[in-house]
Design a protein around this nucleic acid. Structure first.
Length: 710
RNA sequence: GGCGAGGUAGCUCAGCUGGUUAGAGCGCAGCAUUCAUAAUGCUGAGGUCGAGUGUUCAAGUCACUCUCUCGCUACCA
């Protein structure tokens, strides 16, 4: 495979329904950013696109709940995204929005095109429609009389009395749960992408990186978990997938199409196309042509995403791109796994997270410190963990003690001995080399060694191995510390000043190289170093490539005679109390937020309705786990007058042997229902806290089974 | 239950198509050192590679069984 002419790098579009946390950074954005910054330093033609994902049901539902327009929500988070990304140094060439006109046009155009190419099948059906609520009704929103058992409260998908599954049109006297009115049947059609048609080539593409015998990428370079998940999907057989929805908020299905009324594009069709519309907008702003970036075979397309997005980026979107015909396929999709926080999963709803917009505020000027820790613990091939303690350790022990300290030593000594002027030296003087500890080494081999070590960082980055790249970076700094330690300029300055000049010159070359190669990971530090060294700011335009060429030819990074600036502390220690404060904040904010998350009180009911329920005390006699079900326990409950079999979804929280003899509250007159083939004759009442944890509602000691609860 | 990904030194993780005494960073111990933000360098201790069985001249690396963690999925009236 030849060297690509240009690169297009995408990072997952963040969903505009909440701010960014460190999991987002570790999942996609920082690796993408390092990759792009590296490409720029190598002088490559690269475009880095992203944007807010602003459609979909979750935003609609939330807007309704809060009584505001979806627009308010997406504007709020789009703004936060932009500020946060900028502050943490994620260097998009464009951050676009899927609510933009250009995006709507682009997705519709795409849709039309796929339609024209016969990629869609239209499946028409009659669906209930609530004229008052002005929308089609999902099955669960319809209640009616069951055709089998005459239960008047059967749902559109299932009757809970007889357990039969139903379709809404089978119900007698259907009514809408939204308005109570009887809905009307209305024809509706949806467009299905014939994914099954693409199964064969997708298989070949995933397995071998080939399409029609043409080698497009090296499949062995894709991550295991990415390949595994794709194969799992392909094994299951691909089904046609609906690409339209009955929704109010989203990209309209092209209006000229029959039946497009009230229909929107499925967000998962619209979102990846967001990469394309973003590229278009970028091209427009930059006066470039967007098409080669998406359509030229010499372009390398890379999607950076979290593991939750794998199938969409590796199966569905490629199918769409291929179906369209003109578009290239991604060269790699280096999806990361998840990052946990202090031993628990990051959770937005439980407020168990480190919010990036808060971090950049509270730790202003310490953006690279977070970036460093993220790269260090990047969940490249399995879930990883962020802890504040570890953040402190990596900062103090690695950034301060190793990197910043090395640079500081060199700058301080150079200022002290030479007034800040990089010394000229005699090429024939030997000094101890950093890595080999041998006396035969001299200046030139030190430069070549530096060249090789930079190359190792470069190689790691090209293989999406950011963790290794970071380690290589730090080992360059370590070798600088060795160089000083072995040669002891502070001791030799008086006795062998000429030799010290050679050593210090070599040391400053390492610092100069670090100022360039640290940039993909630590962009702010890179800038600070350039300033301290009194070197021109990096324009992200091939500086690293030039540096490598020079070193290969034995040319120094910085010429002797150059005047550097005064020492500045690049990183400073983070004290224990700062870390303790953060941990405290995390611990205290989590439960507080959970408690504000109470379920709203339901609509007022009547005493009569309440009295319809027959609640009884009960005692669990037997309990066993339901086979082939993770959550279900089959219980025998003593109700005094009889023993009931009750199936309950509590297996995650209770072991069968532990709950025998437990007093419980039972809804005794609930219609029986079959669950996994076992008839459940009642329901055990459970309390559920904000974390979803369950607890029994138990009568006091002394109550046996069968007594009335009222 | 089905499928996928993992379980490697105290911690965070590398170990590609099976091949000499299993690696890195951090932490820890000892020694050296002071130019530097009590920083640095050297040396060292630490692992029956989740458990078991098998294939092989040879297995962390392949196969099977089991077990634990995470994700998707089904089942929580």
């Amino acid at each position: 495979m030849t060297e690509p002419k240009r690169y297009l790098v995408t990072a997952a579009l963040p969903y505009a329904n909440g701010p960014l946390h460190i999991g987002h950074l570790a999942g996609a954005y920082l690796s993408a950013d390092a990759y792009v910054r590296w490409l720029r330093l190598m002088g490559k033609d690269v475009v880095f696109v992203c944007g807010s994902d602003e459609h979909g049901a979750a935003i609609t539902i939330r807007a309704k709940k809060e009584g505001i327009a979806p627009r308010e929500i997406i504007d709020k988070y789009d703004k936060i995204f932009r500020e946060t990304f900028k502050k943490i140094g994620v260097s998009f060439d464009i951050f676009h929005r899927t609510s933009s006109e250009l995006h709507h046009e682009t997705s519709q155009e795409f849709f039309r095109d796929l339609l024209k190419k016969g990629e869609f099948t239209v499946q028409e059906s009659e669906q209930y429609y609530d004229e008052e609520a002005n929308q089609f009704l999902a099955d669960r929103y319809i209640i009616g009389t069951c055709p089998n058992c005459e239960n008047p409260e059967a749902y559109g998908d299932q009757c809970e009395n007889c357990g039969n599954s139903l379709s809404p049109t089978e119900l007698k006297n259907p009514r809408s749960t939204l308005s109570g009115n009887s809905p009307i049947l209305k024809k509706t059609s949806h467009w299905y992408l014939a994914l099954d048609k693409h199964e064969a080539w997708l298989k070949e593409w995933i397995d071998k990186g080939e399409v029609n015998g043409e080698q497009l990428h090296d499949a062995s370079r894709w991550k295991n978990h990415v390949l595994g998940q794709c194969r799992s999907w392909l094994e299951g057989g691909l089904q046609p997938r609906s690409m339209t929805r009955d929704l109010e908020w989203g990209v309209d299905v092209p209006q000229e199409l029959e039946g497009s009324d009230g229909k929107k594009l499925y967000v998962w069709l619209d979102a990846p196309i967001g990469y394309i519309s973003a590229t278009k907008q970028w091209a427009k702003d930059a006066g470039k042509d967007w098409e080669p970036y998406w359509k030229d075979k010499d372009t390398q397309l890379v999607h950076f995403i979290g593991k939750d997005n794998i199938v969409f980026h590796c199966i569905i979107f490629p199918a769409i791109l291929k179906a369209h015909g003109d578009y290239i396929l991604p060269k790699n999709v280096p999806a990361n796994q998840f990052m946990n926080l202090e031993g628990r999963k990051i959770s937005t709803s439980k407020n168990w997270a480190v919010w990036v917009h808060e971090y950049v505020q509270e730790f202003e000027g310490k953006e690279d410190e977070l970036r460093y820790n993220m790269f260090k613990n990047m969940p490249e091939s399995r879930d990883s963990e962020f802890t504040w303690k570890n953040y402190q350790e990596t900062n103090n022990n690695e950034l301060v003690n190793n990197l910043a300290n090395f640079i500081n030593r060199v700058v301080v000594l150079t200022n002290k001995y030479y007034g800040g002027e990089i010394p000229k030296f005699d090429e024939n003087i030997d000094f101890t080399a950093s890595r080999s500890d041998s006396e035969t080494s001299f200046h030139e081999t030190e430069l070549l060694d530096l060249h090789d070590r930079l190359l190792e960082v470069v190689t790691a980055l090209s293989e999406y191995d950011f963790r290794t790249g970071l380690n290589e970076l730090m080992s360059i700094s370590s070798s600088g510390n060795q160089l000083l330690q072995f040669n002891e300029p502070w001791a030799k300055q008086k006795t062998e000043p000429e030799r010290v000049k050679a050593v210090m010159n070599a040391a400053i070359q390492i610092v100069g190289a670090l100022s360039v190669v640290c940039r993909p990971f630590l962009p702010f530090t890179s800038d600070k170093m350039r300033e301290m060294l009194n070197l021109p700011a990096i324009k992200d335009n091939g500086e690293l490539a030039t540096l490598l060429e020079n070193l290969a030819e034995g040319k120094p990074v910085i010429e002797a005679g150059h005047q550097i600036g005064k020492p500045v502390h690049l990183f400073t220690r983070i004290a224990d109390d700062v870390i303790e404060q953060q941990i405290e904040k995390l611990m205290s904010s989590a439960p507080v937020d959970a408690s504000t998350n109470y379920e709203p009180v339901k609509e007022t009911t009547t005493f009569d309705d309440f009295m319809k329920m027959d609640l009884r005390t009960g005692v669990i006699l037997e309990a066993e786990k339901m086979k082939k079900a993770d959550k279900l326990l089959v219980l025998k409950v003593d109700l005094g007058f009889e023993t009931r079999t009750v199936v309950s979804g509590i297996a995650k929280f209770f072991k069968p042997e532990e709950i025998i003899g437990k007093r419980v509250t039972v809804l005794a007159n609930l219609a029986p229902r079959k669950l996994r083939g076992v008839e459940s004759q009642g329901m055990i009442l459970m309390a559920e806290d904000a974390d979803g944890k369950l607890g029994f509602v138990s009568p006091d000691e002394g109550f046996g089974g069968g007594f009335v609860v009222k």
